[in-house]
């Protein structure tokens, strides 16, 4: 019995701790996503501006490969933000047409494994004719992730240990109360009031039934069962 109880409490403590760990990890992921979207919004401004210029030129009939001035624009926008490594304008097949980094001209974006933020360039028919790709320093995200991880670890570990420990303490307390209640129930004088009232009613009915009821005596068992007061001394024992 004690082994079952302790095993059960240990399992409950594990469940509590696991769910806190689960909550902490998912909170970390949520913060990480929020952090990434703020960073990408920052770099997205430059990408949007280049895409706007390319779209305006395309609407005037200048094909994307002919927009030679985009190189200086990309260069300028990339210099505005020191964390930007390169800014490319790729055609609809992903081939880099213009870039702030001359070494990237002619490369296929798909073959480049680096992290990039992409904004589409569309023509007047809303067809995608190219993409602006911003490559930024992955260290920015990594540093943010590490800082968030450290912050949450400081919070999550005590919460996890606390939840497990609190579950064990409360479980032991409840188990002790249960055991105490079971031990007290060995003595009918210490039974709960409803059980004692039922017992008193049973004894009363049994006594009278054993003697034989006088004919026509009204039944009063319900009243006695519901309203039976504990015998003197019982309440003291209960206390």
């Amino acid at each position: 019995m004690a082994r079952t109880t302790l095993g059960l409490i240990a399992v409950f403590a594990l469940i509590a701790a696991a769910c806190v760990a689960f909550g902490a990890y998912f909170s970390y992921v949520t913060l990480l996503n929020a952090h990434r979207s703020v960073i990408e919004a920052r770099f997205g401004i430059a990408a949007e501006r280049v895409a706007d210029v390319a779209e305006q030129a395309a609407s005037l009939g200048i094909a994307l490969p002919a927009q030679g001035t985009l190189t200086s624009l990309l260069d300028r926008e990339a210099r505005v933000e020191p964390a930007i490594r390169s800014m490319d304008l790729a055609d609809e097949r992903g081939i880099v047409l213009f870039s702030s980094d001359p070494a990237r001209l002619g490369l296929a974006e798909a073959q480049d494994g680096g992290r990039g933020l992409t904004r589409p360039v569309r023509n007047d028919l809303n067809e995608v004719i190219g993409h602006v790709v911003v490559r930024y320093d992955p260290q920015i995200l990594a540093a943010g992730a590490a800082a968030l991880g450290d912050d949450l670890k400081v919070i999550a570990l005590p919460a996890l240990i606390g939840a497990g420990a609190a579950t064990i303490v409360i479980g032991l307390l409840l188990a002790a109360l249960l055991r105490r209640a079971a031990r007290r129930a060995a003595d009918p004088g210490a039974w709960p009031p409803a059980a004692r009232a039922a017992l008193a009613a049973a004894e009363s009915v049994h006594r009278e039934a054993a003697r034989g009821f006088p004919p026509g005596k009204p039944t009063s068992g319900r009243a006695s069962a519901a309203g039976a007061a504990p015998r003197p001394g019982e309440s003291r024992r209960r206390a």
Binding site: A16, V20, G23, A24, S27, T30, L31, D151, L152, V154, I155, A156, P158, A159, L160, G162, A163
Partner: peptide, 10 residues
């Protein structure tokens, strides 16, 4: 309580 604490930390 534990998740509120984590929320505060977040």
């Amino acid at each position: 309580s534990a998740l509120a604490f984590i929320g505060w930390g977040a």
